[in-house]
């Protein structure tokens, strides 16, 4: 196969790529041309004399900036302090954005060294020794409501996970927690079981960067179980697997209750995120009569035996192919067993 055929841009057809690009650019241009009422934007935090990147930062950047000092400096030690200018927090035209003191406190005692020659810490230091609730006050005074509505009752808030445990405020424009390609580095910092599961052969495309933890979970708290974005496991799954929502003419009971009865969304060794290989998974509920009593076996060759095929190929779903539910009205008992 030639290079041209293999190049992804040609592989799917040039039109396939051009369409979304063109649509994006056209729509983008259209919207960009809309008149903007600048008066709706909160009053600006314009920089004052002596300020470097944030309003009133002059008293801080006098030390936390080494542009005039050629020796090893604080800028080398903490180069990201000024990079807040690249972020939403550094958009001084938005009057809601903070000053240094809004988050770190006025910190007047920090401005000069004490009798012992040491400089006291700022009023609010984001260190491991600072209680999470005190650190979070700097954030939650603005970031409340909306997606943060349930923060106060969330598992993270009540386990001492501070906002800055995950978010890098002085980032260089890409906060790892908000970038879907790097988000798992943050989440797996604590969630080791999920890291192990994501490494299994069957997984959602999270390691490939096509999904992120936050596609299903709201780490700021939610009304759903396990901080899921929706009110239940199934409602969360239906965001992408809408065809499973049903209802079906023939419902399979566990499907209607909770997808996680059979699937582990983070990853499994069995195919299709199934928690166990078939027929064992099915035999957790169905093992007492007919071919459901079968033992697992690897066949020596071709077979049409229902009882022998439960562990090979698609397992029980070789025949029960519509296992999530069927819509047939055929007057035949097999349709109620998800075979049509």
């Amino acid at each position: 196969m030639g290079m041209r055929e293999r190049l992804g841009i040609f592989k799917g057809g040039l039109a396939r790529l051009l369409w979304p690009v063109s649509a994006t650019v056209l729509a983008f241009g259209l919207v960009s041309g809309l008149a903007v009422n600048a008066e709706d934007t909160p009053a600006s935090n314009k920089l004052g004399k002596g300020d470097t990147v944030l309003k009133g930062d002059g008293k801080c950047t006098g030390c936390h900036d080494d542009s005039d000092n050629p020796s090893p400096t604080m800028l080398e030690e903490r180069p990201w302090i000024l990079s807040i200018a690249k972020t939403k927090h550094g958009t001084v035209a938005d009057g809601r954005t903070p000053t240094c003191a809004n988050c770190h406190g006025e910190s007047t005692s920090h401005m000069k060294k004490g009798p012992d020659g040491k400089r006291p810490a700022p009023d609010r230091a984001f260190k491991k020794t600072t209680p999470a609730a005190i650190q979070d006050e700097a954030c939650t005074s603005c970031h409340k409501g909306g997606n943060h509505m349930f923060w106060s009752s969330s598992a993270h808030a009540n386990r001492g996970v501070a906002c800055v445990s995950c978010h890098d405020i002085h980032n260089s424009g890409h906060d790892k927690a908000r970038d879907r390609k790097t988000q798992t580095e943050v989440c797996f910092g604590c969630h080791k079981e999920q890291r192990a599961q994501m490494n299994r052969p069957s997984h959602h495309p999270v390691p490939e960067g096509k999904m992120a933890c936050s596609d299903c979970h709201n780490p700021h708290g939610s009304s759903g179980p396990k901080q899921l974005k929706k009110d239940s496991v199934n409602e969360t799954c239906y965001m992408c697997h809408t065809e499973k929502r049903g209802p079906f003419i023939h419902n399979h009971q566990p499907v209607t209750e909770d997808c996680s009865i059979c699937h582990n969304a983070h990853g499994t060794t069995a195919t299709n995120l199934l928690k166990q290989r078939q027929p064992l998974l099915c035999q957790n509920c169905h093992s007492s009569d007919s071919h459901r009593t079968q033992l697992m076996q690897q066949l020596p060759g071709r077979s049409t035996s229902t009882g022998a095929l439960g562990a090979m190929a698609r397992g029980c779903t070789n025949c029960h192919t519509n296992i999530h539910g069927g819509n047939s009205t055929e007057n035949n008992a097999t349709v109620g067993r998800f075979r049509r």
């Binding site: 992804g8 841009i9 592989k11 690009v21 994006t24 600048a38 709706d40 934007t41 035209a93 096509k210």
Partner: peptide, 18 residues
């Protein structure tokens, strides 16, 4: 962009306004 797993994101906003 050159693969079948392509993503495109565009954003225009006046921060804090629209």
């Amino acid at each position: 962009l050159g693969l079948d797993s392509r993503e495109i994101n565009a954003e225009y906003n006046v921060q804090g306004n629209w």
